[in-house]
Design a protein around this nucleic acid. Structure first.
Length: 276
DNA sequence: ATGGTCGCCGAGCGA
């Protein structure tokens, strides 16, 4: 007979780009109270530490770790179990001061899981007016190369880990409402997709597509042009699992409910369940 | 439809 773990039977881990945690606070707190994830990985906080609504989140039973930045970016890990921060930036470029990565080990008990909240650069525009590659696209590709290098190191630990967040990559045309329109977008460019595939080829499992081999489901809908009403969406929010985490994968879904509410983020949460 | 919408902050950028 196995000892009881701190988790219970199933561990729920969700990722959500909230597009300003301050503007989104009512949406975030109601979602946490209803869905009750064990771990929530948030992106685009758009605030520094002193602007984060820490008390409101802690009141719902969460420990909070964040890497903040004024106006842009910002990532957080919320965990009901204790968490130990491992990194507040993606290694590989000390000059990169954008708050796009935080990594922690959650659940110091029987079966800890390493998690990272990732806000991968958008990468648009891809080209300058003269046709040369734009620095924003180059930065995205360099950032992906750094993520690949870091993931290689993590895999050597044989830890159960989950790298989740807004990857700003549509892995295939299944993940785009209009693949022709987006063919030259940084979210769909071959260079972006090739690096995403490299991550998977290291041995990581993209949870949603592993459990849903076909079908168009999206995690982001632009605020403009009635995109939500027309389901003109993109699937760019992903959870990538190490082999030890993938062995425990029990479920994955996109929760469209928050996107349909008033004052919604343009992204909606994606979650997984890991068996204990 | 050569616009359209958000959130930052308080003009214009980023998405």
């Amino acid at each position: 007979m196995r000892a009881l773990s701190v988790w219970g039977k199933i561990l729920k881990i969700a990722t959500w780009n909230v597009n300003s945690v301050k503007a989104r606070l009512p949406r975030v707190t109601e979602w946490l109270a209803e869905f009750k994830p064990d771990v929530a990985l948030l992106q685009e906080l758009k605030c520094q530490e002193d602007g984060f609504p820490r008390l409101e989140i802690e009141d719902l039973g969460y420990n909070v770790a964040m890497a903040g930045q004024k106006t842009y970016n910002g990532v957080a890990i919320l965990s009901k179990a204790p968490l130990e921060v491992e990194l507040t930036a993606l290694p590989g470029d000390d000059a990169d001061d954008q708050a796009r990565y935080i990594e922690a080990v959650v659940g110091a008990g029987e079966r800890p899981v390493r998690v990272a909240s990732i806000y991968l650069p958008n990468g648009n525009p891809t080209r300058n007016d003269d046709g040369s590659d734009h620095e924003k696209f180059a930065y995205k590709l360099r950032w992906m190369d750094r993520l690949i290098a870091h993931a290689k190191g993590l895999l050597k630990t044989e830890d159960a880990f989950v790298l989740a967040g807004d990857y700003n990559v549509c892995p295939t045309d299944l993940d785009v409402y209009d693949p022709v329109k987006f063919a030259d977008d940084a979210l769909c460019r071959p260079e972006s997709r090739a690096r995403f595939r490299t991550l998977l080829n290291l041995g990581l499992t993209e949870a949603f597509r592993a459990l849903n081999p076909g079908g168009h489901q999206y995690s982001y809908w632009d605020y403009q042009a009635g995109a939500w009403a027309k389901d003109n969406g993109l699937r760019i929010d992903h959870l990538l699992l190490s082999p030890q985490a993938a062995d425990r994968l029990a479920g994955c879904a996109i929760d469209k409910t928050p996107r349909g509410k008033e004052k919604a983020s343009d992204h909606t949460p994606v979650w997984i369940e890991l068996a204990d």
